[in-house]
């Protein structure tokens, strides 16, 4: 097969996603814009990392400390919006007794 590195050159870029986010914001949907900006942050991560982060956010998968660590990692790797989402989740999960 001729294809060697299939995904690399067909990835949307963070810049493009941020531009689309601005369009969504201008069209009156700041939530969609925010999602596209989170997506822009996640372009830097590999597929299997995304799958792992998602799993970690599901109910009962992570302790509060582990979610804090995930948020810190996201922050450190240039994904502050995703980090904020994870922190907010951690707080809500603890308050609602999903995790401790």
């Amino acid at each position: 097969m001729a294809v060697t590195d299939p995904a690399a050159d067909l990835r949307i870029t963070a810049e493009t996603l941020r531009r689309q986010a601005d369009l969504a914001e201008g069209a009156g949907n700041p939530q969609l814009a925010e999602n596209l900006r989170r997506g822009a942050e996640l372009t830097a991560f590999a597929d299997d990392e995304l799958l792992r982060f998602y799993d970690n956010l599901r109910p009962g998968r992570s302790s509060a400390a582990e979610l804090d660590q995930l948020a810190a990692d996201l922050d450190a790797r240039g994904a502050p919006r995703c980090a904020a989402l994870v922190r907010e989740a951690g707080g809500a999960y603890v308050r609602r007794g999903l995790i401790s």
Partner: peptide, 16 residues
């Protein structure tokens, strides 16, 4: 949870 779903939404966005 709503947050895991929101993260999932961002994952899809990240790959266009």
């Amino acid at each position: 949870t709503p947050w895991s779903k929101a993260f999932l939404a961002a994952c899809y966005a990240s790959r266009g």
